[in-house]
Amino acid sequence: MELVSQLVLIAVSAAIINNFVLHYFVGICPFLGVSRRVDMAFGMGCAVTFVISVAALLSWLCTEYILRPGAPLTSWLTGNPEADLSILNYIVYIFVIASSVQLVEMYLRKFFPPLYKSFGVFLPLITTNCAILFACLEIMKHVSIGAGAGAWGGGGGEKWGLAAAMVLAIAGGVGFTIAIVIMAGIREDLDHCDVPKPLQGAGITLLVAGILALAFMGFSGVDSNLKKAISPQDPPAATATTPGDPTEGDPSP
């Protein structure tokens, strides 16, 4: 129960409340560049979601077993239980991302040539998509928490397992897809509008993104209410707020 509520919170928070694009500003380049048509935007979103999941899986494994302070594999190899390779974090992550993009590219080219053709140049460009590295970094922050040696402190909360990391990655990818598809829908309609010349292109896109971000800010309270609703440690509040809760509404401590 504890795990499920944690996962639901992570998913809702990553996909909607703290949307990767509209709250953390990661993945802005494809958000501006590939949001001209809905079908292309959706394809990009799917590709990013897929790569993000592969990269998150690999980077979680690397962090947990090799990179974090006191990681089992490193300690066993060096004979030093305090071994800490976290200085290599960024290099390993970027390597993992580049390889998973390469892997996805080869797989698609072999088994789904039409899909591969339709992605075209976007696939290699995903390597430099900030959203993926951002997901890896979030995971790193939460995996190396136990030892307290994250590269930048590390926030509160408990250590994440593989499930939490995967949920964050997939929900983040879904959030990216939601944002880019909404944007593409609006931009298709914008084609018929009389936009002032200096604002055409990126300018109006950014303004629309601002309004979208404003709309997504409306979700910001959902986080704490949902926590109250599904948190097992807080039975009185939970019973009070369960009616409006669509997910795990039953608190069983």
């Binding site: 604002l199 990126a202 300018g203 601002g210």
Partner: peptide
């Protein structure tokens, strides 16, 4: 976050507008 998008949008428009009379294309 919304302020960031809106500020950059308007500044981008402003820069494009300032450089338009000189005949430069506002190229992205």
């Amino acid at each position: 976050p919304p302020g960031a998008f809106i500020t950059l949008g308007f500044l981008l428009g402003g820069v494009n507008w300032l450089s338009m009379p000189r005949g430069k294309k506002s190229a992205g």
